[in-house]
Computed example of a mutant assay.
Amino acid sequence: MRRNWAARLRQGTIGGIRAVTLENERLRVTVLPGKGGDVVEFLHKPTDTDFVWLSPQGLRDPRDHLQGAADDVAQFIDHYEGGWQEIFPNGGAPSEYRGARLAQHGEVSALPWECEVVADSPQEVAVRLSVRTRRLPYRMEKIMRLRSGTAALEVEGRATNESGQRLHAMWGQHIVYGRPFLHAGARIRLPQGVGVIPHETAINPPARRVRAGGPWKWPTVPADGGGETDLSVVQEPGSPSDIVYVTGFQEGWYEISGHIGMRVEWDASVLPYLWMWQELGASTGYPWWGRAYTVGLEPFSSMPTDGLAAAVAGGTALTLEPHETKVLTWRAEVMA
């Protein structure tokens, strides 16, 4: 019989998409190997708090959604249920790299991953997810682990260049927060001494939260309309949409908290940047239509969000030598 205490896991489907749930006394984490390895639930059971933002359009199986004009942005947006995504080898806008056209946030977030159970005991449960990209010769793997008695998800990821060519990539964790956890006045804490670089242009023109230019010192930065704004405080619904890049991490970590909190730690030698995406309802056209209230705090290898070719040109792209494997460890823990 299925174990229903301590650390345990179950496999099934959600909306026809393969799913696996890792659970213990304090935490329930649901992952979709059938769609990008997305995390679609990160529930702290004692407070009934789910940290994951869920898009108003809901979960859509890419296999059942074939209508509409094809473009390299819609490929991600049409099937974006919210959740947390693995982003590789292209981050942000569509890009072309050495003849390969890469869609927004492509490729692995749009692909089904293989899944196998590697630990299943009352002490811990773990699954290994793996996938090969289709346009570039990479293999991705991640082990997701939950230990009994903890409120932390532990992840070890691997990116392998399976070719004899020197290649580039962008690698990121698209971690976004939403209601009911996220609310105006929630606080974001980062290590001392980090800096802020605004995105060059507004993502929802003409309004933006942070004045172009910089770099600025975290957390109080020049506001676009004059004065200052405190980036450590989540703003009210309807506040300007924006994206900034946080740099200068000696240790990779952040905390976001209100009545309860989350701490994310990662290897800053692999992901030296943090993308801070704020979509608080000000974007009233495609694709949000004023319905989004979310903040993304996304550890990334590279910047800006203009795609792999721009990261290569700017010198921030990851470099993988022939047959090289890069390893990334990160963890997300509830602070209660």
Rank of each mutant, 00 (worst) to 15 (best):
M1L: 11
N4A: 12
A6P: 00
R8I: 00
L9F: 07
L9G: 05
G12A: 03
T13P: 00
G16Y: 14
G16M: 12
T21E: 10
L22H: 06
N24K: 03
N24G: 01
V29F: 00
G34R: 04
G36W: 02
D38E: 11
V39D: 03
V40L: 03
H44L: 03
P46A: 12
T47A: 10
D50C: 06
F51D: 06
P56E: 08
G58K: 06
L59H: 10
L59M: 14
R60L: 12
G68K: 09
D72V: 00
V73Q: 05
V73C: 04
I77M: 10
I77K: 01
D78F: 04
Y80A: 11
G83M: 04
E86R: 03
E86L: 02
F88T: 10
F88K: 01
G91W: 05
Y97I: 04
Y97H: 13
Y97V: 04
R98M: 11
G99R: 06
A100W: 14
R101C: 02
L102S: 01
A103K: 09
Q104M: 15
H105R: 13
H105W: 14
G106T: 03
A110C: 03
L111H: 11
P112C: 09
P112T: 10
C115F: 05
D120P: 01
S121L: 00
P122K: 06
Q123A: 15
L129K: 06
L129P: 01
L129W: 02
V131M: 04
V131T: 11
R132P: 00
R132T: 01
R135T: 08
L136T: 14
L136C: 06
S148Y: 04
A151V: 11
A152Q: 15
A152P: 00
V155G: 03
Q165R: 14
R166K: 13
R166S: 06
A169H: 12
M170F: 09
H174K: 10
I175H: 05
Y177P: 01
G178N: 04
F181Y: 08
A184K: 10
G185D: 11
G185T: 09
R187E: 15
R187L: 14
I188K: 04
I188E: 03
L190W: 06
L190G: 02
P198T: 08
T201R: 13
P205R: 12
A212C: 03
G214N: 09
G214C: 10
A223I: 01
T229K: 01
D230E: 08
L231T: 13
V234W: 01
Q235G: 13
Q235L: 12
E236Y: 02
P237V: 07
P237N: 05
S241Q: 07
D242T: 08
Q250P: 00
W253D: 02
E255R: 15
E255M: 10
E255I: 12
I256C: 12
G258S: 13
H259T: 14
P272V: 05
E279Y: 07
L280N: 05
L280E: 05
S283R: 14
P287K: 13
P287G: 04
W288L: 12
W289L: 07
T294F: 10
V295I: 15
F300H: 13
S301Y: 10
T305D: 11
A310Q: 12
A310Y: 01
V312N: 06
A317M: 07
A317N: 05
L318S: 06
L320F: 10
L320S: 08
E324F: 03
K326L: 15
V327I: 15
M335E: 09
